[in-house]
Amino acid sequence: MGIVFINYRRDNTAGEARALFNSLVQQLGAERVFMDVDNIALGRDFREVLRQRLDDCEVMLALIGRGWADARDAAGQRRLEQPNDFVRLEIATALQRNVAVTPVLVQDARMPSADALPDDLKPLAFRNGFEISHQTWDSNVRELVARLGLAPAGHSDAPRSRTPMLAGAAMLAVAAAAGAWFAMQEPPAPPTPTAAATPDTAVAPAPAPASVPPAPAPALPAAQEAPREIPTPAPVMAAAAVPSPSVQALVAALVGPDVQARQDAAATLERDHLRSREAVQAALAYLPYERFQTLGTVAQRSRLLNFLLATEDAAWTPELRAEGARAIASVQARMRANPGGFRAENMQRVDALAARLGA
């Protein structure tokens, strides 16, 4: 699950926004809740931060208090009519991206009618709202979390992520115990015919026949061992075809669950790797539908598609194009069979990538 974005007007619902933020952090964790006052570092361009957070946002909670639709500035102009009003811009952007925008009614406010909203906010009037009361705040927030399908912090991915770690630790412990047991059970090495064995005889000991007296290792076995020590070209070619660990880690961060890591990886890839064939190859590993569907959020999927769309033609060999075309065709086929399982913006990205690769 991605970020829960709290949209509010400071002079209208600042207190309720703070209380909701604190309640959601307790249930979901601080990394999954965004409110501009707390989450924009000093010196950062807040417009860019808001854009990035909206890229990773899956749920927006638009706090609506009394007088929200008719709030005015010092000049008496209605704020929602101003194109640079951030409350309006955030909600309009989220609606365009088909984010689940939920009006949260506080202060006994009522849902605004479509006629009271500018054109880009009119869809908000048809979204199901949720009322939170001061008297029943805690129970209301718990119900909101449940109805939105947001797993509380105690039931999030953390326990699942610890399970493989515990299993891995158990396997390592078993392996270590087994190794120690076999070490204790290993019989002593048979005595060698000479006190100082050469490396060749140590690698491939061959006891001499009883009728032949012990002798130093002949030159012939050493000559026979030498060719086996020369690396064959096949492993070198295979290693060159695999993306470097650093690039693989970068792409893994791009599609991973950590929001900040996704943003950092996207910036690095867009800056340094748009012409990189190994970056394209590493990204294509996540594109076949069987792998694509394991990316848990819309933001993770969109980051992958955005990077592949942004890469330059020089990064695509004919083999990579063919591989990409097969992979995106599998996603496109599932998308057509179940369009409700895809967000509109990602459906557009899938079609755009398929067109680019000739799928």
Rank of each mutant, 00 (worst) to 15 (best):
V298E: 14
A337I: 10
R343D: 13
E270G: 12
P243M: 03
N306E: 10
V350T: 10
T297R: 11
A314G: 13
L309W: 05
W316D: 03
F292R: 07
G296Y: 02
L320Q: 02
A261I: 04
E319F: 05
P227C: 01
T268F: 02
D258G: 09
L309M: 12
A354F: 05
G340Y: 08
A285C: 05
R356S: 10
G340E: 13
E270C: 05
A282L: 01
R228T: 05
A322W: 01
R275C: 06
H273I: 08
A266F: 09
A325W: 00
A299T: 09
G324T: 11
E345T: 15
V242P: 02
T268K: 09
E319R: 04
R262T: 07
A261P: 12
S276Q: 10
I230R: 00
Q281N: 14
N346Q: 12
E270H: 11
A234H: 08
R334C: 03
L274C: 07
V251F: 00
E225W: 01
F342R: 05
A315G: 08
R334F: 10
L309F: 05
Q263S: 12
A282N: 08
H273V: 10
E229C: 01
L269Y: 07
F342C: 10
L305R: 06
A329T: 14
P233G: 11
A267C: 04
A266Y: 07
A355T: 11
L304Q: 02
F292I: 13
E290A: 14
L284R: 01
V280W: 00
V247I: 15
I328S: 01
F307S: 02
V259T: 15
L304I: 08
V255W: 00
A253W: 00
Q348P: 00
R336S: 13
A226R: 03
V280A: 15
G296R: 12
N338E: 15
D351W: 01
P243E: 01
A344R: 12
V242K: 04
A354L: 02
R301D: 12
N346E: 15
L295K: 08
P318R: 12
A240M: 13
E323W: 04
Y286M: 05
A249P: 02
V350F: 04
